[in-house]
Design a binder for these strands. Sequence first.
DNA 1: ATAAAAATACAACTTTGGAGGTATAGTGGC
DNA 2: GCCACTATACCTCCAAAGTTGTATTTTTAT
Lengths: 215, 215
Amino acid sequence: MKRPKKILIADDHKIFLEGLNLILSEFNHIQIVAECKNGKETIEAFKNIKIDIAIIDLNMNDYSGFDLIIKLKSIQPKCKIIVLSMVDDSSTISSLVNNYINAYVIKYGGKQELIEALNAIDQDIKYISPSLNLNQQNMEDDLSIRNVNHTIEKLTKRELEIIKLIALQMNSSQISEKLFLSFYTVKTHRKNILQKLELKNTAGLIDFANKHNLL
Amino acid sequence: MKRPKKILIADDHKIFLEGLNLILSEFNHIQIVAECKNGKETIEAFKNIKIDIAIIDLNMNDYSGFDLIIKLKSIQPKCKIIVLSMVDDSSTISSLVNNYINAYVIKYGGKQELIEALNAIDQDIKYISPSLNLNQQNMEDDLSIRNVNHTIEKLTKRELEIIKLIALQMNSSQISEKLFLSFYTVKTHRKNILQKLELKNTAGLIDFANKHNLL
DNA sequence: ATAAAAATACAACTTTGGAGGTATAGTGGC
DNA sequence: GCCACTATACCTCCAAAGTTGTATTTTTAT
């Protein structure tokens, strides 16, 4: 028997949060471990609790949905994210965001769509509300995002941390001091990063990191 | 006596182009050297004629205003650019674009604003339509853009070209082959680039290039 | 015509990065 | 308890980047 999925839900409308809780409580393989009513709370939760799936409202008052998702992914890269949006933000949710989220559901799509999204995620398939005019094919065509997504997800927290410091023009020995690591460890991480992302050098890495908002 | 400023104007509404021509012809220190009715023509003109000031409509049918400006700046980094927009695109024209343009004038501001913009440019001052809700101070606060802008303008065409190739993960010897240059020349250019932008290494360069849309 | 800027080229030297290994302790999942 | 993954650490070797100089040619501005 499977371990129940640990779920975080975040929405600044309390009523909605409660409704969502009710809907999800019908499933026994699901466990709601956090309810957050703003971006700050969500980030705190991410730092303290291991989350399998996060259901995030895009329009929260303290963070832009975009920034929030990037932040969350940097804390728990493996966490799967379902974006719940009021409206058809298909243009706002550019190809960049598509690298991070696993499902995009619009609220008026109703309960059924959310359940489908959860099932899709369980099978490692991306889900986009059929109510949206752009279909999954369009999204993938965008930049053969599917593949890139998989490579990004290979990165560990430590590796993401190091990428950020490289972008700040720090060299391996400076990074090792900053993180209280051996110089050799940092070199190993850099090597692994390049290998995972199939990149040739630091220039490529920093370009990639910018294009995929890893910084 | 000053050499007359060479001006390019680009707008996909022919009527507007003609009107603009009339307005500008009142000034004798100005010489209109190109009239373009789309992005493609503008780029062609930039490749063939030296332009002092380009007055560009943001909403052209073949290029997004943003991409076009980046492109033009890469051809003639020193050219000053006045953006003419139908609407108050202040959010669209994010801090990124502010690195490139020297004036932002909305069309309903009328002839007077354009003239003021031209005068400001002559004195190397940025001009933003007073009709816009964001003032110059806001824009500069954004990221102390003014300074960065000056450093970017120090870059030559060749240097910008090389930055792009570095971002493509090419090393100096590959770049030298591609551009039919000596390996040493490429190294010299890299050295000068880092010095001009006050950067420490390639990682910093590629990060900078991304943040300021040099690629 | 002349001065300034840009592009070109070279060399010696130091530091850093990247490739290819190996290895061990700790964590979390099943 | 076992396996996979992560993070840690070390080593060698070679390639590349970066530093500090000098210097010539070509283009552009005035």
